[in-house]
Simulated scan of single mutants.
Amino acid sequence: MAYLLMLFHKVYSHPTSQQWVVFIHGAGGSSSLWFKQIKEYRQHFNLLLVDLRGHGKSKRGPKEWLLKPYQFADVAQDVIHVIDHLSIEKAHFVAMSLGTIIVRTIAQLVPERVESMVMGGAVMQFNLRSRILVKIGDWCKNIVPYMWLYQLFAHVVMPDKHQKESRHLFIREAKKLCQKEFKRWYRLTAEAHALMGHFRETELPIPTLYLMGERDHLFLPAIRKMLSTHRCSQLIELSNCGHVCNIEQSEAFNHHSIRFLLHQ
């Protein structure tokens, strides 16, 4: 694949550590949504934050991004290109929401580059409610302004009052997407069913921590079921927390994830 433009990325260097952590946000977000992690993480690791194609400051890209649909493997290769550019041989990966599918795809493509994975608010299966929501969005995406759909999704995924900050941040970042880019990412979501099925059935021998909010009713049950057969993975459920656990319970998220990474 020819790269005409690299993803926007930001590096925080550690004076002595040789370990890297790469942060991958979810659909509609940007690297700015990791603001509650940077201070704690940079005490231990070198950090790499990226804006995925079409998101944040990676909004403008090469014509290939604009003229044809793409798959999760293409988005994963974008990230691999950045770590190649920075000569990062191996890294820990921390992801949120649909970003967990991208990290799992990176691990599938280049497992030797992945030291461990922290999967926050992991999406590994759509339940009936979320499948209906995706289907409704698919019917409406060409006639309804995308921000209406995104605000609907945000309220379904993050319905509680204490999730107001998370909803606000994700809706704010989603406004930076254009309608065409939203449709491309929506198509990715709609086509993710088979990919997630493969990930549930096939565990890689890479240490993995799933951090899920106990109130993440759309996605937590599938993770519980999946981990009953996965041996290299563990699950921690964060109390009083929904889907976007790195924001809603940032202190607990940082404590558990950093402790996990330091022991790998």
Rank of each mutant, 00 (worst) to 15 (best):
L5P: 01
F8K: 04
K10F: 01
K10W: 03
Y12L: 07
H14F: 05
T16A: 10
S17Q: 04
Q18T: 07
Q18M: 10
Q19T: 11
F23T: 07
F23L: 05
F23N: 07
I24T: 07
H25R: 07
G26C: 08
G28A: 09
S31C: 12
S32M: 10
S32P: 12
L33Q: 13
W34P: 11
F35K: 11
E40R: 09
E40M: 02
R42S: 12
Q43H: 13
Q43W: 10
H44Q: 15
H44W: 15
N46A: 04
L49N: 01
L49M: 03
H55D: 02
G56S: 00
G61F: 05
G61Q: 03
L66W: 09
P69C: 00
P69V: 02
Y70V: 05
Q71P: 14
F72K: 03
D74R: 02
Q77I: 01
I80G: 05
I83C: 02
H85Q: 08
L86Y: 04
S87Y: 08
E89T: 12
H92L: 00
A95V: 00
M96R: 06
M96Q: 14
T100I: 00
T100N: 00
P111N: 03
E112D: 08
V114I: 08
V114S: 04
E115T: 13
S116L: 13
M119I: 14
G120M: 04
V123E: 11
M124W: 11
F126C: 10
L128Y: 12
R129A: 14
R131N: 12
V134C: 05
K135T: 15
N142K: 05
I143F: 15
P145K: 00
Q151G: 08
L152E: 11
L152A: 09
L152G: 05
V156A: 05
K161S: 11
Q163L: 07
K164V: 14
E165K: 12
S166R: 12
F170L: 15
I171G: 09
E181S: 15
K183R: 14
K183P: 01
Y186D: 02
Y186T: 00
R187Q: 11
L188N: 10
A190D: 15
M196R: 10
R200W: 10
R200S: 10
P205L: 09
P207S: 10
E214M: 14
E214G: 03
H217C: 04
A222L: 11
R224F: 05
M226I: 15
T229D: 15
R231L: 14
S233Y: 15
L235M: 08
E237A: 02
C241L: 03
C241P: 05
V244D: 11
S250T: 06
E251W: 01
F253P: 02
S257N: 02
I258S: 02
F260W: 04
F260L: 00
L261V: 05
L261R: 04
L262N: 12
L262D: 06
Q264T: 11
